[in-house]
Design a protein around this nucleic acid. Sequence first.
RNA 1: CAGUCAUUGAG
Length: 235
Amino acid sequence: LLKRRDSQQALAIFERMKRENCEPTADTYTMMINLYGKGNKSYMALELFREMKSRKCKPNICTYTALVNACARDGLCEKAEEIFEQLQEAGHEPDVYAYNALMEAYSRAGLPYGAAEIFSIMENMGCEPDRASYNIMLDAYGRAGLYEGAQAVFDEMKRLGIEPTMKSHMLLLLAYSRMGNVLKCEEIVSQMQESGLTPDTFVLNAMMNLYGRLGQFEKMEEVLTAMENGAFKPD
RNA sequence: CAGUCAUUGAG
């Protein structure tokens, strides 16, 4: 019933549930918080959380994670930490999702070292970082302009036998593009192809923006036509 | 697959 991916619908149903004195369940709240979080309405998410507690509805670990994430998107790093603590006080062992969400908060706040710290805490807790963890670290370094750090994370992934995902490549690409290092960017794109990944519109858009910023309009046209051709014919 | 990761977007 609530599996709608549609925020408008979800909201309407949610309101109706309350009107009809039907207590929303923890799962319902989690979904709603998640919804607000993704829609950059961290504020509403936090408010919902308060409402939830005042109704004596017990938040579970997913609820907290969703909330941390909501804060992360808004760069409310301190709020995120606060919630993370609440999570622990509630007797939950933070899992990889929770850590990742928290790292995301630091990353967005422009604190790559904070993120790195969490990364190592996570390892010390015997919690295996997953692909998302690495991607977030990549992003954290990339945003801060620490391309060396980003590159290190990327290499580390490969060393561990984790195939970098499309996102990983994108993030690394962006790290270099912020430095205006076009050559490196082009290199990465070809590396991607060698790994058997097809540059998608995400990548092409990123390249377009890069060239645009640098005023390399000829390159832009090349990319454009590549896009139009549906590109990458095997031969 | 209840919760975590990617590009751009003039207030």
